Computed example of a mutant assay.
Amino acid sequence: MTASTDSRPYPHAATPEQHRERRIRSFHPRRGRLTSAQGSALERLWPRYGTPIDGTPLDLAELFGGALPVVLEIGFGMGETTAAMAAADPGTGILAVDVHTPGHGNLLARVEQDSLENVRPAAGDAVLLLRDMLAPGSLAGLRVYFPDPWPKSKHHKRRLIQPEFVALAVSRLAPGATVHCATDWEPYAEQMLEVLSASPELVNLHPEGDGTVLEDGSVPGYAPRPAWRPVTKFERQGLAKGHRVHDLLFRRR
């Protein structure tokens, strides 16, 4: 397994840069209780494969031990979907960001178990990572699967997919890079579609939609569910509640 050259400890506390930030965030840091396997993986493997989000610019070729195209995944939960996609596509690097400590431990355990050479977990705020640590045009894709929908109206400002975030993320995407979002929360899907469609640098890969027809006869531009995206835990929970899952696929011009 190729290791990164990063040997910094796991960032259990926010960095000074994060403390000074006065932005509205789309997440709450979640430590949770570690299992012994997660704790062991975190202690043994984080110094070799983990990336704290501390403002230090990243050399993605160095981080992944080669010139792999790198996709940024924001919010990987327990890492099961990330690991499955990494195993199915070893030629793509996945920089996987979350703030859930047990999830980092679980993903690292899967990296070791499945000998995954193309995954690097990162801990902290994805906005700081994009803004301060990644070079323009350095990413081959962006994945945001089932982010917190913040369903209450007063919390909509906390949703990740907003015009400002999309503009920042697009600036870090290479031409031809893919943006893939998925959610089971209908109002958030509508917001995602509106925000992504409004970006002048993005093209909807499925403007004809997935077969959904609204009451007014219009066809929203959601994508058919890609077979290569594994079903996530949050997706199963949403389906169990009778929610409809929407995928959105856009390409950077």
Rank of each mutant, 00 (worst) to 15 (best):
Met1Trp: 15
Thr2Arg: 07
Thr2Gly: 11
Asp6Arg: 08
Ser7His: 14
Ser7Asp: 05
His12Thr: 15
His12Asn: 05
Glu17Val: 06
Glu17Met: 13
Arg20Ser: 04
Ile24His: 12
Gln38Gly: 12
Arg44Ser: 15
Leu45Trp: 07
Trp46Ile: 07
Tyr49Val: 03
Ile53Trp: 01
Thr56Ser: 08
Thr56Ala: 12
Leu58Arg: 02
Leu63Tyr: 03
Gly65Asn: 11
Ala67Cys: 00
Leu68Phe: 13
Met78Ala: 08
Met85Leu: 11
Pro90Trp: 09
Gly91Lys: 13
Gly93His: 06
Ile94Glu: 00
Leu95Arg: 11
Ala96Thr: 06
Thr101Phe: 13
Pro102Gln: 12
Gly105Arg: 09
Asn106Glu: 15
Leu108Lys: 01
Ser115Glu: 15
Leu116Lys: 00
Asn118Ala: 01
Ala122Leu: 06
Ala123Tyr: 12
Ala123Val: 15
Ala126Val: 11
Leu129Thr: 06
Leu130Ala: 10
Ala135Cys: 04
Arg143Glu: 03
Phe146Ser: 09
Phe146His: 09
Pro147Val: 02
Asp148Ala: 00
Trp150Met: 03
Pro151Arg: 14
Ser153Phe: 05
His156Pro: 04
His156Glu: 07
Lys157Asp: 11
Arg158Ile: 11
Arg159Thr: 08
Arg159Met: 01
Leu160Arg: 00
Ala169His: 04
Leu173Val: 06
Val179Tyr: 10
Val179His: 02
His180Trp: 08
Trp185Ser: 09
Trp185Phe: 10
Glu190Ala: 14
Glu190Ile: 12
Gln191Ile: 13
Gln191Ala: 03
Val195Leu: 03
Ser197Val: 08
Ser197Gly: 12
Leu202Tyr: 07
Pro207Asn: 09
Gly211His: 09
Gly217Gln: 02
Val219Phe: 10
Pro220Arg: 05
Pro220Lys: 15
Ala227Met: 12
Ala227Lys: 08
Pro230Arg: 02
Pro230Thr: 14
Pro230Ser: 09
Glu235Pro: 03
Ala240Cys: 04
Gly242Glu: 04
Arg244Ser: 10
Asp247Met: 06
